[in-house]
């Protein structure tokens, strides 16, 4: 167990370092902006005095390295600054009021997590079942049809799948709502109902890889001697696959599932925009459009952190599920 623990700790440390470097990249990228935030806020008709005043308020007159560490320590303690769009006289004069970035992001982040959770709940079991079935009936019409269907759904743009689902499940047959106007204090079933269409869209997007990996991993094992043995014992094909092949194929499948959940983080942006789902992706795109730099920076870092974390989880799960590492000689 010692080796595993050491490797996991190594990976965790590596992930932290990566995150730190990524934060530097994001910070430097934003500072490549011509002029600075102060001129950006005030626009073209600004007087030099006003610009200087805001620069002082935002601490822009300090050197870049100092600002970076200030920003980073703010990030760690949860103080992400104040969004430009929410700046007003009161905040400029140092008073309270105005919405801080964290107040904007926190509720939306939990909404996005909810959506990703619902998607995972639907996508993982379906793709596992379909993958096992495709391996069981390999090279049959069913296998080919699933192959074509999943390949098409994964290679179409997210918004195409989203609008197709809206067309068939919301407009032509009013079964599900096409707008996900979620708010606080909503009943759970209502919330689920409203986020079902975006979740289904994301399911279609991430399902293909998981299903194909399940199928490939199982079929890879079918030539092994112990599967041959199980077959010769007279065990039914489904039992051979579920009891004998699947447990040994779990490692690559788990890795692909974790990687696809990481992909959800990116896919969520477009889907949230289509369904007007109040998640962090929607906030990110809106802030990009109005160049609300503090929010863009914070969202970017959160996305990157989630992405790194899930990739790390995939890594660690792959290590844990490898018996050779778990039981070193």
């Amino acid at each position: 167990m010692d080796t595993v623990l050491r490797i996991i700790l190594q990976r965790l440390a590596l992930g932290l370092v990566t995150l730190l470097v990524v934060s530097i990249v994001i910070f430097v990228a934003v500072n490549l902006l011509p002029g600075d935030f102060a001129e950006l806020i005030l626009g073209q008709g600004s007087t030099p005095e006003a610009v200087a005043s805001i620069r002082r308020d935002l601490g822009l007159d300090q050197p870049m390295v100092a600002r970076y560490f200030q920003w980073l320590s703010g990030m760690v303690t949860g103080d992400l600054g104040t969004s430009f769009a929410q700046l007003n006289f009161q905040t400029n004069l140092g008073g309270a009021g105005g919405v801080t970035v964290i107040e904007q992001i926190a509720p939306r982040f939990s909404n996005t997590l909810f959506l990703a959770g619902v998607t995972a709940m639907i996508a993982v079991p379906i793709s596992l079942i379909l993958g096992v079935l495709a391996a069981l009936y390999r090279n049959s019409a069913f296998d080919k049809a699933t192959n074509i269907f999943t390949l098409s759904s994964v290679s179409s743009p997210e918004f195409f799948m989203a609008y197709l689902l809206i067309l068939f499940l919301a407009v032509l047959n009013p079964i599900l709502p096409s707008l996900s106007n979620i708010y606080d204090g909503m009943a759970f079933s209502d919330r689920l109902n409203k986020s079902l269409l975006p979740a289904l869209t994301l399911t279609l997007v991430v399902m293909a890889q998981m299903m194909r990996m399940t199928r490939a991993a199982i079929i890879n094992l079918l030539a092994s001697p112990y599967i041959e043995m199980a077959r010769l014992k007279g065990i039914s094909p489904i039992r051979v696959i579920v009891r004998h092949a699947l447990p040994n194929a779990l490692a690559p499948i788990i890795t692909v599932i974790a990687l696809n959940l990481a992909y959800l983080i990116t896919g969520v942006v477009v889907v949230e925009v289509v369904f007007v789902y109040p998640g962090i992706g929607q906030l990110f795109v809106d802030s990009v459009k109005i160049r609300d730099i503090p929010v863009v920076q914070a969202c970017c870092l959160i996305f990157a952190a989630a992405y790194i974390l899930l990739n790390l989880t995939a890594d660690i799960l792959a290590i844990i599920s490898n018996p050779r590492l778990r039981h070193p000689k």
Partner: peptide, 21 residues
């Protein structure tokens, strides 16, 4: 490092900056 940032997110961030430039 570049691959540790989701590509669409990174592209959106850089496009924000490019749209000012």
């Amino acid at each position: 490092v570049l691959m540790a940032i989701p590509s669409l997110i990174f592209a959106l961030l850089l496009m924000t900056i490019a749209s000012v430039w």
